[in-house]
Amino acid sequence: MRILWGLIMLVPASVGLWQLVQQPLSWKWGAVLMAFCALIVLGIKSSYVRERCLGSSADFLWSSLSAAGGALATYALAQYTPLGSVAASGVVGICAGQFLAKGKLDFPAYAGAFVGMSSPLVLASLPEVALAGLLTGIIYEAVHGVFDGVGGRLGTMAAAAVLLTVLLFGGGCL
């Protein structure tokens, strides 16, 4: 089970790598890519922590709700105001950092904000965004000890949740 959650974190990078190798690559870029992949494997090995403490059911619930809230707020700001997705995630992040830090819910809410940055071509409706947000919260609580201290960890969770949601809703246009 522990390995399964770790593997979920590798889904976005694997899909991205698969898409990258579909493009024509020169042998030089291919060699750079191989070396880079080797470094990433070493990085995963060095950042993996064996000791893990899973949160309680309440932690799972609150993290999921705050991630879904962050996702919906960012998606609404990005799609229905002229802010754009990057600035929308910034607004939600600042609010989360200001108001949710005491309950330690700022991280899952910010992870949810990354879900809300999705294009409407990928997540077409608010229920899809909410589901991806809930999944992000679940992944956030389940992957303690995986990539701890690595910047971009929250975004990786969000990307994994979005890809799982796209899979559940039958495709999208990846």
């Binding site: 990078a13 898409q19 080797a38 060095s46 690595v150 971009g152 960890r153 975004g155």
Partner: peptide, 27 residues
């Protein structure tokens, strides 16, 4: 051109950069 429109794409790129750096330091 990878993971276009997928939320969390930027974070995944950041994580890959940090992991590659951590891997280099480990090596």
């Amino acid at each position: 051109n990878c993971l276009v429109g997928v939320g969390g794409r930027l974070g995944s790129c950041a994580a890959l950069a940090v992991l590659a750096f951590a891997g280099w330091q480990f090596a």
